[in-house]
Design a protein around this nucleic acid. Structure first.
Lengths: 204, 204
DNA sequence: GTCTATAGGTGGATAGAC
DNA sequence: GTCTATCCACCTATAGAC
């Protein structure tokens, strides 16, 4: 196996296990077993467990950044932009089921942890863009202006991630089993959120 | 120290640490130290780490159940009921800062875990009540009826918890530091969510 | 009920052969 | 690059004195 192949295999296994069990509960030996690779190799490629975790985070953030770029490039009407943002959020989280779980853990842990500045910076950028967008809509008269733009932005970007982070619970609530809702249901929820958010923002 | 006093002290310390670090990363020795008590006492009162964690969960769920009961007793107009639900959610999560963190971890972990059936049952009950409420509002004409009631219910109950689970990130986004927003801001957000949700649900 | 001592096991990490 | 063997630290849990 070539260098990159092996390290990639380890990264895949690690991502899966960190998502499923969290950082502390996951052992290097488990990762080696899951990757079908000698556990000692983890140290050859990643020095230690902490750096391995960061490498996993780095790859995930790369995914988000790529997807995120898509949603900000064209700046159409505010309501179309909100729709696009929600859509990309939804597709990103559906496409990488390990993302919401690791993200969820990072959100809760943020204080102590690993919490990459990248992530904080990225979400801050995205957040302030969304705030501007909402303010623009308010000035244009399409959005109601008796709502704090920052709180509204938080509400909008909360809806989709929570659904995916709490996926097993959503499975119970929607009676589709503990594995969570199927892909079509998740897509449908994404479309619902766009409607819900725009209805909340719309001027009367 | 009397029995209950000691076990209560241990529970307090454990709740704090489990919230801050999670189950796997928290050690019995840390708990003993934080509680100012001999670590071996943990086993005297709670048998093992797992059962201690369940005891912590049990206390927290008790809190939720007590608060939750309040919000369902009187059944006023649907929009008032939504307002009340959001308000209680917000106050409960503000009042017990350790609740959203442990809850967040449970949400992510639900599969494997400890995830008490109590919690699942409780949220399911609350959820189906909210669904009925929304459907009632739709039939009464106060809520728009071109929205799936279950999806709408999920959206409504997502808004407040996400804010508290991601509290450190919210601190960054709202520029109030990594400790998260202050109590007044959290209250204000709760009020905002009520407006946001009702605007989203309202018939045109 | 509380404390000390310790058994028993596992995890992260390294040294060194191949 | 890969694998074996192993060290050391630390964690859960128990036995037993007080």
């Amino acid at each position: 196996m070539s260098d990159t192949e092996t390290s990639e295999t380890i990264l895949d296994a690690a991502e899966e296990l960190f998502a499923k069990q969290g950082f502390a509960a996951t052992t290097i030996k488990q990762i080696g077993a899951a990757a079908g690779v000698n556990p000692a190799l983890t140290y050859y490629y990643f020095d230690n467990k902490e750096k391995l975790y960061r490498a996993v985070l780095g790859r995930l953030i790369g995914t988000i950044a790529t997807q995120g770029a898509r949603q900000l490039d064209p700046a159409p009407a505010p309501d179309q932009a909100v729709r696009a943002l929600v859509g990309v959020q939804s597709e990103t989280l559906i496409g990488r089921p390990t993302l919401p779980r690791i993200l969820g853990r990072e959100l809760v842990d943020h204080e102590l942890s690993h919490a990459s500045d990248h992530l904080a910076h990225l979400s801050a950028t995205l957040f302030s863009r969304l705030c501007e967008l909402i303010r623009a809509g308010q000035e244009a008269g399409t959005f109601r202006d008796d709502m704090d733009a920052r709180f509204a932005a938080i509400s909008v970007i909360s809806l989709v991630p929570y659904f995916h982070i709490a996926r097993p619970v959503m499975g119970i609530l929607l009676e589709s089993g503990p594995d969570g809702p199927d892909v079509e249901t998740m897509r449908a929820y994404g479309r619902h959120v766009a409607e819900f958010a725009l209805a909340a923002l719309a001027a009367r």
